[in-house]
Design a protein around this nucleic acid. Sequence first.
DNA 1: ACCTGAACACCGTTCAAGT
DNA 2: ACCTGAACACCGTTCAAGT
Lengths: 221, 221
Amino acid sequence: MSKARIVATVVEILDAEGETALTFRSLAARLATGAGAIYWHVANKEELLTAATDDVVAGVMAGVTLDAGPRDVIRAIALGTFDAIDAHPWVGAQLARSPWQYAMLQIFEGLGGQLHRLGVPEDAQFAAGSALLNYVLGVAGQNAANARRVPPDTDRAAFLDDVADAWTRQDPAKYPFLHRIAGEMRDHDDREQFLAGIDLILAGIGTLGSPEPSPDGPAER
Amino acid sequence: MSKARIVATVVEILDAEGETALTFRSLAARLATGAGAIYWHVANKEELLTAATDDVVAGVMAGVTLDAGPRDVIRAIALGTFDAIDAHPWVGAQLARSPWQYAMLQIFEGLGGQLHRLGVPEDAQFAAGSALLNYVLGVAGQNAANARRVPPDTDRAAFLDDVADAWTRQDPAKYPFLHRIAGEMRDHDDREQFLAGIDLILAGIGTLGSPEPSPDGPAER
DNA sequence: ACCTGAACACCGTTCAAGT
DNA sequence: ACCTGAACACCGTTCAAGT
């Protein structure tokens, strides 16, 4: 048995039955072995989750083409991550809770690596990259949490209505904003909304740049 | 015994010994009772964490003065949340994993409630508010994760050096961004960096607004 | 109405013993 | 070198029995 096969089985279990279904006993049963055998290849459960997340994120990053405008590359990486978390909610949970693991560095470099092409001054790149990363991780965590909380067969529209209904049940004098946006909540598209947030941060980053485009990457749009 | 006393004790344990130390057995021992007694007041552990988080966030929101410019109010709420998570890392973890709980609605309303004062069109407020919220939640999750991973007595400068060293150990051709920002990583201030992200999103939001300030809140700055 | 505490059904992890 | 599987030290949660 190889670590690669163990990790592949971990991904299978997580995808098919969710995070609660992954135990050393279930994993060992699936691999037709004992729990101790797994511990020979891996230090603990955390390493299992980390390796599985690295696998998925590596797949995402491999699918991103870097020869586009910097904003489009950032959008592609962000959306790729979003879609991966949508398909594998446990990836979102893992990204949100394990800082500076390999998968996160990949995303951070991918997003931040475009900033000099946008003309962002070097001393603002750390802040700008962190803003993008933290936004992505925030959404990742929320999506994962929602997937955990809501039964898999729940109707999406009904779920959104429930949330919006809870908002409009609040006192309008104390929660005017929630009342104002409840309608939009009911029929928003998660993916579109996510991208709007990325574009908002990109717009903010645009105000940081020097007026002239950087030599190796003309600003598009 | 009241639920309020139980929750107060939960906060004590979480603050003093961290998330792993909170069990029904430790809590019952501290309250000089049996585990079953707690279940009479509370449905499960999740409710314990939620109630404790609500308590802390309510304290934060009560401390924010709303009679300032909209950007300053947003900064105050974001920083208040940041500081609360810094003082109680478990709050960050809980916020990151439990969507639409009371505490999160408070923060969402607090942040989003300022958007019309900034002249953000109604149909862009949901996206703008979500961007702010998700950024805050992303940072919350990362800080909580760091606090969990790093021993409490670790020297901060040494920790940052370790992370930055790991970055510079990567291949510079594949990770140019990480190399570029490693220096900034070593001596950045978390709080300042967090606020820079908020200001970046605010700058992006500024590009959405109508040119003239809204009637009930002149744009400052 | 509220508390007690043993019992149940699990966990992750370890480790002597095998091959 | 790698696997086995029982055992250890926990968990959250339930529930009959108490007051």
